[in-house]
Simulated scan of single mutants.
Amino acid sequence: MAQNKESSPVPVQITLSGPSDILAAVPYIVGYHPRDTLVVLGLRGDTPRLHATFCRELAPADADTDCDAAADRLAAALLDEECSVALAVGYGPAAEVTRQVDAVRSAAERAGIAVREALRAADGRYWSYVCDSPGCCPPEGVPYDPSVSAVAATAVANGLRAWPNRDSLRDHLAPVGGTRRALMRAATRAAEERGARLRGSGPPRGRDAYGPRFRVEGARAVRDAVAAAERDELPEDPGRIAWLGVLLGCIRVRDEAWTLIDPERAPSHQRLWRHVLRHAEPAYRPAPGSLLAVSAWARQDTALAEAALERVHEVDPDYSMAALVHRALRTGLAWRGYPSESLQAVWPLEDP
Rank of each mutant, 00 (worst) to 15 (best):
P93K: 13
A107F: 02
T98S: 15
A108D: 09
L119Q: 08
E109T: 14
Y129S: 06
G135D: 07
I113C: 10
G112A: 10
A111I: 01
A111R: 12
S128E: 00
A121E: 11
G112S: 05
E96K: 13
R99H: 06
R99E: 06
G141I: 04
P93W: 15
E96S: 14
P138S: 02
V104E: 03
T98M: 04
V97I: 05
A111S: 13
V104P: 01
R120S: 03
E117I: 01
D102F: 07
V130F: 00
G124Q: 12
L119N: 02
A114D: 15
V104H: 05
V142R: 06
C137T: 04
P93F: 12
C136G: 00
A121R: 11
V142I: 08
V97T: 12
D132S: 09
D145V: 06
S133N: 14
G135P: 05
R125N: 11
Y144M: 03
R99M: 01
Y144D: 00
A121P: 06
V130K: 02
G124E: 09
A103T: 06
E140D: 14
C137W: 04
Q100D: 15
C136N: 05
V97R: 10
Y126L: 03
A103P: 04
S133R: 14
A121W: 08
C137G: 08
S128H: 03
R105A: 12
S106P: 01
Q100I: 01
R116G: 07
V115E: 04
E140V: 03
V142P: 02
E109D: 14
V130W: 00
E109G: 10
V115R: 08
Q100E: 15
A118C: 05
A103S: 08
V115D: 02
A103N: 07
V115S: 08
P143H: 05
A114I: 02
P138W: 03
D102G: 05
P139A: 11
A108K: 02
G112E: 13
P93Q: 14
R125A: 01
A122Y: 11
E96P: 02
A121Y: 12
G92R: 11
P93L: 14
A122H: 15
S106Y: 10
C131E: 07
R99A: 12
A95N: 13
A94F: 11
V104L: 07
R120Q: 15
A94D: 13
A118R: 08
C131I: 06
E96F: 07
P139F: 07
